[in-house]
Structure formats: C-alpha cells, structure tokens
Design a protein around this nucleic acid. Structure first.
Lengths: 150, 150
DNA sequence: GTGTTATGAATGAACG
DNA sequence: CGTTCATTCATAACAC
C-alpha cells in the first residue's frame, strides 16, 4: 500500500526550494552572477517569493552553497576499478527501465559531485510538470556496485 | 510488485561498502581522524579501492555520517526515566529562551543578513516577506502555501 | 511480498 | 569564501 510514493512534502524545518525556485536560482546562477549583491539578493528573493516562501538569507545561502559545491568537484568521481579477481559474478543487476519519475521533485539525487560546471550548457527544465525522467538523465552510475568482492 | 503504479527506481544504486571496506573505515575513523583532509580521503579511497568499488565521495560521506551518528547516539542515551511510553515530545513553544542552548538549533531561516554590506546604498529593512519566513517554519499540511510545488 | 531498519547521499545553515 | 554540522530523504539490506 505504502509502496507508492506517498510522501507528503509537508513542511520542514528548513527551507526547501520548490522546483520552480530552484530552476530560477540555477538559471540566475548560471547567468554569471557569482557574487550576487545585496540588491540582487533582494530582487531574487522577491521574485522567488512568488513561488513560495523564501527569505533573503535562503537565497544568500543557496548561492554560497552552490558556488562551494561547484568548486567541490575536486572530490574525484574517479571510479577506481580493481580487477583483482577476474571473476565478476553478476549478481542481480536488475536495472529497471529508466522511466518514470523519482519521488521528490525537489531533490534529484545526483551522483557524486558534479563534474564540471564550466560547461556552458544550459540545462533547464521547462514544463510545469517537470519531467523527472530527464532530470535523471544525468546520473552516471558508471559502475557496477552489485558485486561484492570479499 | 508494487501495487501502486507509481514505481520506478532510478538506475542509481547506493554505494554499499563491503565488510572489508567498512572494517577499514571504522579502523581509520577510530584512529582519530575526525577531520579527514582531502588528501587523506584520497589515500583512503585508494586503499579501499582495492577491496571494491569506491570513490572519494563515498569516503567523505561515510566519515561525515559516521561522525554525525556517533554524536547523535551519544547525545541521546541520557534517558532519565525508563519510561515505556514516551509522551509527545513536540510541544508548540515558540517562546524563545533568552539563552539559547549551545546546541545548534536548526533555527528557521533567520534574517540576519548582515554579512558584508557592500552595497553603497543603505537598504531598507522592511521586507514584507519576512512574515512568511516565520510562517514557513511552522507550515503544516494546512492549506497555507501548500501550492508551492510548482 | 510487505514492513522495518540501517545507512549512504543531498542540502540548507552555521562556523572559522 | 571554504569547510563542517545537522537534518532529512531515499534506498539497500534485513526481518517477517
């Protein structure tokens, strides 16, 4: 019964950007405002306030985090593959068909840290309903974690 | 499976440490490295990579979680009474003690916003939206801003 | 197969 | 501004 994603996104203690807000934030961030001024923050806050509760502090923090996180990509995505054992017992790699959406619109789990944001790629999700599927397209598991080697 | 139509799991799998890796991690953690540096992370990752797939991010997260968990576990055991039934812990008490506890209360979004005031122009603190902030901290499933999904 | 627990991962907020 | 803490979510692992 509960298998269904019956997650009520009820209120949380800490601010949670709505997908729309997030989209806007990312967009702005991507626009090239690495150092949003106070005025800018205010503006953004005001703008985003139309889509949900938000405060200037939230915006400020968000940008700070965003920047830090981007830079944080130094933490290697390097998948250290070791093939000590030639045996690669395929466990149950039941890869489901990548379709459908996740469960929560606000947080799409990414892989490790993003690789590089230098790419001038503007990936934005339009569609008021959001195709989570597309969001997931970024996942790059690039690994077969199903195997246990002891 | 899944009676609900809402199903679909992403292809992303969560990293699962092998017992060996876990053992090593615990050992390192126990050694007294509460704050593993990036270099350390790399080292550990490399080491553990010999026992299974792992990335620096995994190691980093593991330590973070480990630490948080430890703290949390240790903070709770001080149960005074062996009360079988626990009363409702959540009481609406917005009265702020002048002396906040040392614990870092996940305060709701404050509005200090007093970091660098680079703006040459003074700013008016009148944000009408601050009222929302407070509301947000408590918003329940009620029909307040429930429509902020998109 | 269903429900619960354990734990990795993501993120907002705070500290230095 | 970079790093760390705390909280929450999602999912693998486990128990029923």
């Amino acid at each position: 019964m509960m298998a269904c994603s019956g997650h009520k996104i009820s209120a949380r203690q800490r601010w949670t950007p709505t997908p729309l807000q997030l989209q806007l934030l990312e967009r702005i961030f991507d626009e090239g405002n690495g150092t949003p001024t106070k005025q800018k923050i205010k503006d953004i806050t005001n703008e985003l306030g139309q889509h949900g509760p938000i405060s200037e502090t939230n915006v400020y923090n968000w940008f700070q985090n965003r920047r830090a996180r981007s830079k944080r990509k130094q933490l290697a995505p390097t998948s250290n593959n070791n093939n000590t054992s030639s045996a690669e017992p395929e466990a149950e790699t039941e890869v489901e068909s990548p379709k459908e959406k996740k469960t929560r619109p606000e947080s799409f789990q990414l892989q490790p840290y993003d690789y590089e944001n230098s790419s001038p790629h503007s990936l934005y999700i339009h569609s008021p309903d959001i195709g989570f599927d597309q969001l997931m397209s970024k996942i790059e598991v690039s690994g077969c974690y199903s195997s246990y080697f002891l």
